[in-house]
Amino acid sequence: HHGSGALAALHADGPHAGLPVTRSDARVLIFNDWEERKRSEPWLRLDMSDKAIFRRYPHLR
């Protein structure tokens, strides 16, 4: 199991509170979210491209 239990660094406060600090933090969040959702949506594709990251977390651009 590759990303399970990996912890992402999140901004503690300010405008980005609760959001990932780096792209690799964002990838951890996206992976964990996908892993949760694919139980009920097995067709869901995992997209951890930069484009997917920016779409979801525009502050990382």
Rank of each mutant, 00 (worst) to 15 (best):
S24W: 11
R27M: 10
H59W: 02
R55S: 12
H11M: 03
S49Q: 02
M48Y: 06
G14L: 03
N32V: 08
R27D: 01
D13S: 12
V21M: 15
D13T: 11
T22V: 11
S24V: 08
F54D: 15
R37Y: 15
E35W: 14
H59A: 01
S24P: 04
S24T: 09
T22H: 06
A9N: 14
N32G: 06
H1P: 11
E36G: 06
L44I: 07
W43C: 13
R39L: 14
E41Q: 07
A12M: 11
E35Q: 14
A52Y: 09
I53S: 00
E35N: 13
R23P: 14
L46C: 06
H2F: 15
A17Q: 10
L46E: 01
I53H: 02
G3N: 12
R45E: 14
A17Y: 08
L29N: 07
A8D: 04
R39M: 10
S4E: 11
K51Q: 11
W43P: 03
A6V: 10
A26P: 00
D13H: 08
E36W: 07
I53G: 05
H11F: 08
T22M: 03
A26Y: 01
Y57R: 00
L7I: 13
R55N: 13
L46G: 01
H1E: 12
W34Y: 09
L19M: 06
L10E: 04
D50N: 09
R39P: 09
G14Y: 03
T22I: 14
H16P: 03
E41W: 06
F31A: 04
S4P: 11
R61H: 06
R55F: 15
T22F: 02
V28F: 06
G5C: 14
G18E: 03
T22N: 07
H11C: 08
A17V: 10
M48H: 12
L10R: 06
I53K: 15
L19Q: 06
P15I: 07
V21P: 02
R55Y: 09
S24N: 12
F31H: 05
R37Q: 14
R56E: 13
G14Q: 03
L46T: 00
S24E: 13
L44N: 04
G14M: 04
V28Y: 06
P42Q: 05
F31K: 10
A12R: 11
E41C: 14
L60Y: 01
P15M: 06
A12Q: 11
V28L: 13
D25H: 04
L29R: 03
G5K: 13
S4M: 12
A52C: 08
F54E: 12
G5R: 14
G14T: 03
I30E: 01
R23M: 15
A8L: 07
A52T: 15
L44H: 06
D50T: 08
L19P: 02
I30F: 13
E36C: 11
T22K: 05
L29A: 05
A8N: 04
Y57C: 01
D33C: 06
E35M: 15
S24G: 15
G3R: 12
A6F: 11
R45A: 14
S49F: 02
T22W: 14
W43K: 10
A12G: 07
H2D: 08
R45I: 14
L10K: 05
E35R: 13
A26D: 00
I53T: 01
S40D: 13
W34K: 00
L7R: 13
D33S: 06
H2G: 15
D50I: 10
A9Q: 13
A8S: 05
D50G: 02
S24Q: 13
S40L: 13
G5I: 13
W43Q: 10
A9M: 13
L29I: 09
P20Y: 00
H1W: 12
V28N: 05
F54A: 07
A8H: 10
F54K: 05
T22D: 05
V21F: 03
F31C: 08
R55T: 15
S49T: 07
A12T: 12
W43M: 09
P58A: 02
R61C: 11
V21C: 14
A52M: 06
N32L: 14
L60F: 03
V28W: 08
P20L: 02
A17E: 08
K51P: 14
R39Y: 09
K38M: 07
R27E: 08
G18V: 03
D25N: 02
E35V: 15
M48G: 02
N32M: 13
D47A: 02
N32K: 12
K38P: 15
T22Y: 03
R39N: 10
D33E: 14
S40N: 15
H1V: 10
F54H: 09
H16G: 03
S49M: 02
H59D: 00
A17G: 04
L46K: 01
W43L: 10
P58E: 02
F31N: 02
L19F: 04
L60K: 00
G3L: 14
Y57W: 14
E36K: 11
N32P: 00
R27Y: 05
S24Y: 12
R39K: 13
R61Y: 09
A26S: 08
E41R: 05
S40G: 08
D47Y: 03
H16T: 05
P58M: 02
A8F: 05
A26E: 00
G3W: 12
F31T: 07
H16L: 14
V28H: 07
A6G: 11
L46F: 03
L7D: 10
G14N: 04
Y57N: 00
L46Y: 15
P58Y: 15
P42K: 06
A26G: 02
R37T: 04
R55I: 12
L7P: 09
R37H: 06
H59P: 00
F31R: 09
L44A: 08
F31Y: 12
G5L: 12
W43G: 13
D25K: 15
A52E: 15
T22C: 07
A12E: 10
R56V: 08
R61A: 11
L46W: 01
P15T: 05
E41K: 07
K38R: 13
